[in-house]
């Protein structure tokens, strides 16, 4: 695992995610959880600009229509959005990995059928699923919520995790099944290894790298679904709806999470483009950071499978093996040179 920390791509990605997450808590600790509000900007005693105020040194990302500082809102909201996406992905993997292993191990014959039945999910837009199932939880009914914000967040995370479990589980099942055709697993089975042992000793270490990559992709997917839901006014932890027929406020997000900031500000695109751009760019930065982490991780792990510690099996010492490898390498280089010279 040490070499992951030497991959620049991984480090950059990790740094950015850590900055947003850690920064979010530090920011709240220093400035409190209410963003600074500016009602107008004065110049020589005259008000020159009212909210939404365009970006300046005082408000690097401008302010929203009520004068709240956008940068503060984004920093305060970062932790909710990122942690929720990570939780969704983690829960999804926790359910899908055992299921996938079971499909790949015990249902090998029925696998084509399982695949065929899961396959049509690919033709149904996920966001619509999410919207249908989450509206009764997140959209405030006229008489107010009957659940607490924590309950709603937990419900939302569970539902979002469950939605794509079938697809992720069959994906893992197919990967596991590929491994069953490998010679060393055939050998292990011939030697009498039980299925449980094969799962623990062979599948888990072989697939660990792929699972982590898959986890990263799931985090990215959940982030994107959060953004989509935000556009539909379904915010993390519930949407506060004002049912006043005359002067109803627009639907509000309860926390400052990014989906809410984005969903509320999208309509200001033409008049005040910094409003929707701020959260959208933050989404993009975090997603790119995770992509960089995935790429760095795969580069570090390329070809290396981390096995649990086991007894040494080799009959020759490490130095001998290393020397052999070096010899082989130099021979190959010579051979390659020969070939290019003769071309």
């Amino acid at each position: 695992m040490k070499s992951v920390w030497r991959q620049p791509l991984f480090l950059i990605g990790f740094g950015i995610v850590a900055f947003f997450l850690g920064g979010s808590y530090v920011f709240e600790w220093i400035f409190g959880n209410v963003p600074k509000q500016t009602f107008f900007i004065e110049e020589n005693g005259r008000a020159v600009e009212g909210p939404p105020i365009s970006p300046s040194w005082m408000h690097p990302l401008g302010t929203d229509q009520f004068g709240y500082d956008m940068l503060a809102k984004i920093m305060l909201g970062a932790k909710y959005t990122i942690l929720a996406a990570m939780a969704v992905a983690a829960l999804r993997m926790l359910i899908a990995i055992p299921l996938g292993f079971v499909i790949g191990t015990y249902f090998q014959r029925q696998r084509t059928w399982i695949n065929a039945l899961i396959d049509p999910i690919h033709y149904v837009p996920m966001t619509i699923f999410a919207v249908l199932l989450l509206t009764p939880i997140l959209w405030m009914p006229e008489e107010g919520f009957s659940t607490t914000i924590n309950e709603r967040i937990i419900f939302q995370v569970i539902i979002m995790a469950l939605i794509t479990v079938p697809i992720v589980a069959t994906l893992i099942g197919n990967e596991a099944n590929l491994l069953y055709h490998q010679e060393y697993i055939l050998a292990a089975r011939t030697l009498g290894a039980s299925r449980r042992r094969i799962i623990i000793r062979h599948l888990t270490p072989q697939l660990r790298e792929k699972m982590l990559v898959l986890y990263g992709q799931q985090v990215v997917e959940s982030l994107i679904i959060f953004a989509h839901l935000g556009l539909l006014q379904l915010f993390l932890g519930g949407t506060d709806v004002d049912y006043d027929p005359m002067f109803g406020d627009p639907p509000k997000s309860i926390s400052f999470e990014w989906a809410g900031i984005f969903g509320n500000s999208f309509q200001y695109l033409q008049g005040a483009p910094w409003l929707p751009l701020g959260p959208a760019v933050s989404f993009a930065i975090v997603i790119l950071a995770i992509a960089a982490m995935i790429e760095g991780y795969t580069r570090a792990m390329n070809g290396k499978v981390k096995l649990t510690k086991r007894k040494k099996m080799a009959f020759v010492s490490d130095e001998t093996i290393e020397w052999n490898q070096q010899q082989l390498k130099s021979k190959l280089i010579l051979l390659k040179k020969d070939m290019t010279a003769s071309k």
């Binding site: 989509h228 959208a280 997603i287 992509a291 790429e295």
Partner: peptide, 11 residues
């Protein structure tokens, strides 16, 4: 292209 792929659609 790997990084371009991870751009969110909304952006």
């Amino acid at each position: 292209f790997y990084f371009l792929e991870s751009f969110p659609d909304i952006l």
